[in-house]
Simulated assay, not measured.
Amino acid sequence: MDIAADIKRTFKEGSVLTRLIYINLGVFLVVKIIGLFFYFAGQPQVLVEWLSVPSDLDVLVRRPWTPVSYMFMHAGFLHLLFNILGLYWFGKLFLYHFEGDKLLSVYLLGGISGALFYVVAYNVFPVFDSVRAILLGASGSVLAILVAVAVYDPQREIHLFFIGRFPLKYIAAFYVLLSIIGISASNPGGNLAHLGGAAWGWFYIYQLRRGKDWGSGIVTLLNKMEGWFIKRQDWFKPKNNMRVTYKHPPRDDYEYNRQQNIKQEEINRILDKIAKSGYESLSKKEKEILFKQGK
């Protein structure tokens, strides 16, 4: 079994949520492996600090990439595990209502908003005057997704082990309250980032209901960057003038069943959205999918 090929295939064919989880896992493993080389060389591990958001503005100016890179960094396995689980659970709920592009924009801009809250607080409030800290982790982005879907669908119930079913709005409110309390108790930087992410999640849905998608710009930019990168790759490929056309592309039963399952999951999601918000809540693409399925 070619594990690398399977990972590459599932990353390429997977949803935005799948790709975000893979990137978080991949970055964690790469950083830990590189850290071993620093360890054996008897050198301090500088990669973590290099990719995390510093509270010092002078250092931040020299590391402008960190408000993005930090949201894929994690201090340890448990830190990674809890954020990945939260991303998966709340990301699945988010995708019941919205397409993957919106999930990506909330994740990225929620993380950037979290970094902004953290940097501003550490440079404004006197309690942090003598503190030099770094911020890392996806929790701000995860909380942005949770609050966004809770604001959009507050009455949706989720099951909590040993407790029972609770409306999503109470789950989101609990995490926000926990973050507020945690500022003075432990990990002030992380909890400030949580609040920044939560603020963006609320703001995004508030503006979306007014017909403004504040995340579309970053998605458009990323799509352009992806197209540019693909073109650059094509420059280095040998040109082949031979064309091969398949009238019936070969595929096995596994591939056929996989594609059918994906189509059915999409239809189920659209029908669930109609049941909750009505037909007019569907996007143009979702209406086209439903029309084709009806034919």
Rank of each mutant, 00 (worst) to 15 (best):
S130F: 12
D153F: 02
V46D: 06
P154K: 13
G110R: 02
F203Y: 13
S179N: 03
N83C: 13
Y70D: 06
I181D: 05
P154A: 12
G111F: 11
A193K: 06
F28S: 12
F40Q: 08
R156W: 02
I270P: 04
S52K: 06
Y254H: 08
T245V: 15
E99M: 01
D272C: 02
E157R: 14
F90V: 00
I171W: 01
Q207T: 08
L160N: 08
V59C: 02
F11I: 07
E286S: 10
L57I: 15
V149Y: 09
D129L: 07
K8Q: 12
I183N: 03
E99V: 00
H79K: 09
A199L: 15
W50R: 11
I171S: 01
M225D: 01
L136M: 13
F77K: 13
V61M: 12
D56G: 02
W228M: 12
S179H: 06
Y96L: 15
Y152L: 12
V59K: 11
I84H: 03
Y246V: 09
I134A: 02
V176H: 03
V27D: 09
D101Y: 00
L87W: 06
Q264G: 00
A41P: 01
P250G: 08
K263E: 15
K295H: 11
P64C: 10
S69Q: 04
A75D: 11
K295Y: 08
P188T: 05
I205F: 07
K92D: 10
R243E: 15
F11G: 09
R269L: 00
I33M: 11
T18G: 13
W89Q: 07
R269P: 00
K273H: 14
V53I: 14
S184P: 01
G211W: 00
K295A: 10
I267L: 15
A199D: 05
M1G: 09
K102P: 03
G182I: 12
L36M: 14
E49V: 03
I7H: 01
F40R: 05
I21S: 01
S105Y: 04
V151G: 02
V176A: 02
G278W: 14
I270T: 03
L143H: 12
P249Q: 07
G114L: 15
D101L: 02
R232H: 10
E266T: 12
Y122W: 02
E286T: 08
S281V: 08
V176G: 00
L93S: 02
R63H: 15
L57G: 00
N191P: 07
L95V: 09
V27C: 12
